[in-house]
Simulated scan of single mutants.
Amino acid sequence: MKRNFTIRQGALDGVEAFLSVAQHRSFRKAAAELGVTPSAISQAVRALEARVGSALFIRTTRSVGLSEAGERFYARAKPAFEELVAASEVARDLGQRPAGLLRLTVPPSVVPILLEPLIASFCQAYPDVEVEIAANADLVDIAAEGFDAGIRLGQFIEADMIAVRLTPSLPLAVVGSPEYLRRRQRPEAIDDLRGHACLRLRRSNGSIAPWSFVNGREAVEVVVSGPLIANDIPTVLRAAVEGVGLAQVPEPIAADAVKAGKLIRMLEPFAPVAPGVFLYYPGYRQMMPKLRAFIDHAKSRLGHGRQGPNSQ
C-alpha cells in the first residue's frame, strides 16, 4: 500500500529549539544561542513534544536530560536538521553570486558564430559557473527540461518569454553552389523559384517553413518545393554547398561559405530581415545571479541592447 510521506504543516517547528537544548542541556543557554527568551524555548519544546506525543526531556530544578524518546529523536533529527541547514546555505549561495550550472538550449547553427567566443570569455570571467550547452534544433520547454535560458531567432520565441537581443536584425539570404547554378538558370525574380530545387526547414510544430521575401514594401511568403527537408539550418546549408539545391538561411550563417566561393547569394533585392538572435527565459520574480552574469557578459561582449516586443 502506498504510504503518504508528506510532512505535516508545522512539523519542523521547535526542532531547532529542541536540538539547542539537547546540546547545551539548558533552556537558558539555548535561548541565548537562538536569541530568544527561555520562555519561548520552553513553549517551542512543549509544542514539539505535544506533536510527537512523547516527553523528550527529563527536567528537574537543577538539570535537563534527554528521555529515551528524546535520545532517539535527537539521534535522527540532528543530522537531518544539519542537512537542511546545509541545503539552505547552498541555495542561498547560488542566490547571492554567480555559481552553479547554467544550462542553455541553443540551435546548432548559433554555436560556432555566436556562442563559442562568448562562452570562452564567460568561463574565464566566472570560474564558479559551469556552462552546459544543449545544441538542439527543436524548441523545448525551458522550465520542464530544466534549462535556465534558450537562444533562438526572435520569430520562434513565445510571447510570454523575456527576450534579450544578442545580434542585430539579420537579413535572410538565398544561396546556392556554383555547381548547382551550372545546371540551373540563376533565379532573378521570386517567381523563378518555381523551377528550382529548394531546401526546406521543418519547424518544431511539424509545419514546413515557407520562404520569406519583401517585394517593395510588401512581405511575401512563398511555398517552395525540393528534394530535402531538415529540421536544422546547418544540414540545409551543407546540402546547399553540396549542390543539392537552393537554401534560405540567415546571412551570417552562410557568410563564410559565400566568402570562400562555395555559395553564391541571389535574389538580394528581395531579401527580408529577420528579427535576429535573442536569449530568452521565463519571467521569474528573482533571476539567478549566474543567468544575470551571462546576460550582462553577453551584452558587454556583443554590444547589443535589449529590444523587441517581449524584451527585458
Rank of each mutant, 00 (worst) to 15 (best):
E221C: 06
A293I: 10
A274G: 06
A159N: 13
F27Y: 15
P117L: 00
V45L: 09
I41Y: 00
I264K: 05
G10W: 12
R183I: 01
E221L: 10
D93R: 14
H196L: 09
A240M: 02
L181W: 04
A134F: 11
L291T: 05
F73G: 01
R152T: 11
I7L: 15
G206D: 14
V224D: 04
I162K: 12
P171W: 03
D160Q: 14
Y281I: 06
S204T: 15
A197W: 10
R292F: 01
Q23N: 05
R217A: 07
A163S: 12
L237V: 07
M288H: 13
P178L: 04
H196Q: 14
I208Q: 05
L291H: 08
V220K: 07
V64F: 00
T105K: 00
K29L: 09
T61Y: 09
L228R: 06
V15Y: 04
G35K: 03
K259F: 12
A189I: 00
V45M: 04
R25V: 07
R183A: 15
F27C: 06
A50Q: 12
A197C: 14
L56H: 09
T61C: 04
E251N: 08
A240G: 06
Y281W: 07
P250R: 02
E82F: 02
E71S: 12
K78Y: 05
A159V: 05
Y284W: 15
R285P: 11
L237G: 08
H297A: 09
A149K: 06
L181N: 04
V45T: 12
G245F: 08
Q312Y: 11
S311P: 02
L101K: 15
Y281C: 07
V277Y: 00
V15M: 07
V52W: 06
R184E: 12
L19H: 11
V258R: 14
Y284N: 14
E132F: 07
